[in-house]
């Protein structure tokens, strides 16, 4: 069938390591098929670079199905590029015009150290989860799964939140580098379910305060929602805010007491 090939001009951020200075560099990629995914276009470019003895552009990827959250870069000033609800690996070249000029830059935030080129360290997101993003249920201690009925609406909403792939695009999109959408998605997933109630208030305090050690604050721009490949709603951020305020009162250990 082969559709007519496209020519794409790519301007890519090149940076050899975390502390090295970086700069943009221009490349021409011919023979781009509209059926290629964005990462396949970069693969093609990298093959050319290697042929010309230039180091390939480093970028993270794995599943290439929009689920692992590895991929992600700024494509023409938007995390994951122009298509809504789509991770970089799921973006296809047919969404661009022939001779398009595409600029790719790594996600930027204080917490996102650049490893190399377009690859960044997003481990601060794991620190937020470690702070309380779980339900304590030691293996073997669980009662029968159908013991607690979970209303379908609750389970569905928890699932809407739980879909977050941890890509960090929300942080990258936010003018404040806030990780609110990520954190709120994690919190809502667990705070909505009956199983998550016991730790709800501790979890909220710990995750929010850990988040703030690394990331900026939400000032309700809603850029995160627009960039999120899973289209996670900012309504979950509202829920985070409410739960955090409530947790200050409900959290018995801290209420009214002066620490340490």
């Amino acid at each position: 069938m082969s559709a007519p090939k496209m020519h794409i001009k790519v301007t890519a951020w090149r940076q050899s390591g975390p502390d090295a200075p970086g700069a943009f560099k221009d490349y021409d990629v011919n023979d781009v098929s509209p059926d290629m995914s964005f990462l396949e276009m970069l693969d093609t470019l990298n093959e050319r670079l290697i042929e010309n003895n230039e180091e390939p552009i480093a970028f993270d990827h794995d599943c290439r199905e929009g689920i692992c959250g590895s991929c992600g870069m700024m494509i023409n000033g938007v995390p994951h590029g122009p298509e809504r609800g789509t991770a970089t690996c799921q973006l296809h070249m047919r969404k661009f015009n022939d001779n398009a000029h595409i600029t790719v830059e790594p996600f930027r935030a204080a917490a996102f150290t650049i490893n190399k080129d377009l690859s960044v360290d997003r481990s601060a997101l794991d620190r937020i989860v470690e702070a309380g993003g779980y339900i304590t249920a030691p293996t073997g201690s669980a009662p029968d799964a159908n013991l607690i009925p979970v209303p379908k609406a609750v389970s569905d909403t928890a699932m809407d939140a739980a879909q977050c792939i941890g890509c960090g695009a929300c942080v990258a999109a936010c003018p404040n580098s806030a990780a609110q959408l990520f954190t709120s998605a994690k919190l809502a997933h667990l705070n909505l379910l009956p199983q998550g109630q016991a730790e709800r208030w501790d979890r909220t305090i710990d995750m929010v305060e850990t988040m703030e050690m690394y990331f900026g604050s939400c000032t309700n721009f809603r850029e995160c929602e627009a960039a999120c490949p899973k289209e996670i709603s900012v309504d979950f951020i509202a829920m985070l805010n409410k739960d955090y305020v409530k947790s200050q009162l409900k959290q018995r250990r801290l209420a009214g007491q002066v620490f340490p």
Binding site: Y134, I135, A137, T139, G140, S141, A142, P143, D144, A145, N146, I148, P149, V150, P151, K152, S155, D156, A158, M159, A162, H189, L190, L193, Q195, G196
Partner: peptide, 17 residues
């Protein structure tokens, strides 16, 4: 059982099962 206790949001029927 284990996964449900951890909060895995498996699909549910309207009755919550």
């Amino acid at each position: 059982d284990q996964c449900v206790a951890q909060g895995v949001p498996f699909a549910r029927e309207y009755g919550g099962q």
